[in-house]
Write a protein that binds this DNA or RNA. Sequence first.
DNA 1: ATGAAAGCGCTAACAA
DNA 2: TTGTTAGCGCTTTCAT
Lengths: 340, 340
Amino acid sequence: MSKRHVSLKTLAQALNVSMSTVSRALRNHPDIGPEVTQRVQQLAQELQYTPNPLAIGLLKDRTNTIGVIVPDLVTYFFSSIISGIESLANEHGYYIVIRCSYESYEKEKECLENLLKLRVDGIIMCLAQETQDYAHFNHLLEAEIPLVFFDRVCRPEEVATVVVDNQEAARRITQHFFESGYRRIAHIAGPAQLNITRERIAGYQQGLQECGLPFEEDLLVHCDLSIASATAATQQLLALSPPPDAIFGVNDTAAFAAMKEIKRQHLRIPEDVGLVGFTDEFHATVVEPTLTSVMHPTYEMGREAALLFLAQMDAKTPIQPRQQVLTTQLVVRESSSRAV
Amino acid sequence: MSKRHVSLKTLAQALNVSMSTVSRALRNHPDIGPEVTQRVQQLAQELQYTPNPLAIGLLKDRTNTIGVIVPDLVTYFFSSIISGIESLANEHGYYIVIRCSYESYEKEKECLENLLKLRVDGIIMCLAQETQDYAHFNHLLEAEIPLVFFDRVCRPEEVATVVVDNQEAARRITQHFFESGYRRIAHIAGPAQLNITRERIAGYQQGLQECGLPFEEDLLVHCDLSIASATAATQQLLALSPPPDAIFGVNDTAAFAAMKEIKRQHLRIPEDVGLVGFTDEFHATVVEPTLTSVMHPTYEMGREAALLFLAQMDAKTPIQPRQQVLTTQLVVRESSSRAV
DNA sequence: ATGAAAGCGCTAACAA
DNA sequence: TTGTTAGCGCTTTCAT
């Protein structure tokens, strides 16, 4: 077996000192004489010594590793959040190990188990769409393993979370539609069990009420966040008589799907139907008409999540779970701008 | 210190047998009597024993971990490739640790070093745009640490790679433009040092030649793959007199940026300017006009890369680096379809 | 100021 | 069939 790495032992033997001396010298322990320290560090440098994290991990019971579980790896929303987590984690010497739950409850449980088997120091995750039972987190809570939820959350009393002001954002969208002259405002919502769905519906209803508009059940449809399902939801809405004159999509993907379908039916945006999305990805500025959307601070959300993880890691004793709420901003573009 | 995990020792003491017996029983070693094996496994199950990968890793000098370095975490291209890597890796019991080089040579070196310090079993990566010196891979090659490049590659004689048929794809695009009646076909290429840039330019030139069109230097402009730079490249092209009547973008992002700029200048697509992208992300079907693009098998590319990694891991002795070439497909949509 | 030894959790060669 | 021992690479008492 060709040794890939030089170890403390290698250094110790080469320098005719003990391993503990080497260990201390490398960490500038005051006990070790300056001359020895110098020689040790020099050789370590030459031989490209790097401490074996497995050995340290075994000893300290930590891996400097964060498990990250997302329902989807590909969409802008999650990949930019991952980017935020990665950047902050790395600034603090942590590595991230990524797993995808594919929106499945079973897969989510499996990912969690696997990451814990790997001995990650904690978990940052977004719940899968299917997940309605939250017992699989009991173990983490009992073992006091740092856990942070972002966007889709549960058990907020017990777990740190990062979310955005969903209700307020939805309220603002509704108000914006009203001020632009729209009166039959529909909402393509997400799966009913998600907090983001509930909060956005609440904001939607609050907005309607504040504008003196009635809430019509027909104008609220759910989708499973897939493109096909958002398309179907749009068709359902446009088939109403009278159809809505404005649609608020649960995210940009849903809005893009709606846009496609609205155009396919030869309706004009924003004249016949106003459209607003949620996330504000780059493509919102590319489509025609450009898409009004809620700017979701995804990168920041990732960084905040990592920060909440670190707070738990660094705390000697369990700390009160923090609820971080980031604010969004409505970016008005063509898709909702018609002459009043 | 509250022990989070039960160890072999815990089990051994509880059952009054030695650790090695427990170790063997858990792995169904034939030496151990069925009755003992049964009892051990039962208790392990009850106490939720999971072997400590740090201990095994220390012993076996492996971590079941793959370091993945990408220039960008957020774009569809890379996130879908990561998705492919993740899926195949997990099927084979590997975890992926992700790092982003942000297209920087220095960062790339740092990511590489960090991941090696973490003792990943190998690396799957895409070169950063800035990277022109490839000496930082010497160490991996010498130490025979599995390494796979995807999309942007170097040292193909020594390192396994996964790429697509860039030249052929670019040739086909050019030919398609010609057949659709376009005669001044421009190309917004990527950074000159990348293999994908060179190959696509070669295909572009080959296509021109086969169609009997001259290659005009002015019609070939480079961008650094950023949106701003693609926009600038488009402006440069449209300012020519006469301007090109077709533009082939190095990727969809560049094509979207070009589309925005073309529209801004009140030119029509595909009538005044034909447009084709590369990657074929979902949004190609959402923009107006829908974007003709080369379907890049990104997810498959990720899986292939992971496969090449596994091949190296499983090989007892160093193996001949494989060059995997995946085929693309031109998906014709509105942006390049005008009446001939 | 330095070294020896124990131990983190596990496997494997060697004994019995 | 089972136990003992050494060792993977490191830190940390405890000696000296």
